[in-house]
């Protein structure tokens, strides 16, 4: 089988027009979903570990539900369920023009929160109970004890896992093709269609995602050795 690969059509103008801003969007989507997802996930983890049955139940249903539905479905359903007026309300005409892109940010934040919450839950449980006692014993409230004593340690213990999850998230952002958001993969696709060279472009896309994800994974591995708390 001859693929007859030909990359001659790929000029810097073509790259600039299709692969730069789309790449920026994919990175932004990953970054926002990672940060907001971790914050929301931490909140859900705290609910899950709280002594209030109602909060526990809510957190469990939230996590189980989102982790049991394929991501593409979640992306589609969020897009279909968010009323179109919502985008212009939060971001004016910009919001109206970028509905799929904004929907993706919202979806990924809520979706990833389910995964991050399980990581943070493990992190919180990895902090010895004596630390909580020590926090309370010096007069901290529950909130202070969590914020100043437990969560910093939980976060540090789990940082490698959180970052690994974020690498997975970066790869998963390519699924926003389902709602037609202009992400990096869409950029490759557009060029491929434009010059009728889909094989070349999908090959490049795969290489691009691989290089970035693999180097990030390597960085995480290095970081892991560095940040261990000495006990």
């Amino acid at each position: 089988m001859a693929l007859n690969l030909d990359f001659s059509f790929l000029t810097s103008d073509v790259i600039k027009a299709n692969l730069v801003s789309t790449f920026e969007y994919s990175v932004q989507l990953t970054a926002v979903a990672a940060v907001a997802g971790t914050l929301l996930g931490t909140l859900i983890a705290l609910m899950r570990l709280s002594s209030q049955p109602a909060l526990q139940r809510f957190a469990r249903v939230y996590v189980d539900l989102l982790r049991s539905v394929p991501l593409v479905m979640v992306i589609l359903w969020f897009f279909l369920l968010i009323p179109s007026g919502f985008y212009s309300t939060i971001a004016g005409s910009f919001g109206d023009a970028h509905r799929p892109e904004l929907a993706a940010v919202i979806t990924f934040t809520f979706f990833e929160a389910a995964y991050y919450s399980e990581i943070m839950r493990a992190g919180i449980q990895s902090v010895p109970r004596g630390q909580v006692f020590a926090g309370y014993a010096v007069g901290m409230t529950y909130a202070q004890c969590m914020r100043l004593v437990v969560l910093p340690q939980a976060f540090r213990n789990m940082l490698p896992v959180l970052l690994t999850q974020t690498v997975v998230l970066f790869q998963d952002t390519s699924l926003v093709y389902a709602i037609g958001a202009s992400d990096w993969l869409k950029g490759f696709q557009t060029v491929g269609n434009l010059f009728n060279r889909p094989a070349e472009m999908y090959l490049l896309a795969a290489a691009g995602y691989f290089v970035i994800s693999f180097s990030l994974s390597m960085l995480v591995r290095r970081l892991q050795a560095k940040i261990q708390i000495i006990r």
Binding site: G130, A134, A137, V138, Q153
Partner: peptide
């Protein structure tokens, strides 16, 4: 309060 396992914040 002082604990058996010290419980300083590591």
């Amino acid at each position: 309060m002082v604990f058996q396992h010290f419980e300083l914040f590591p």
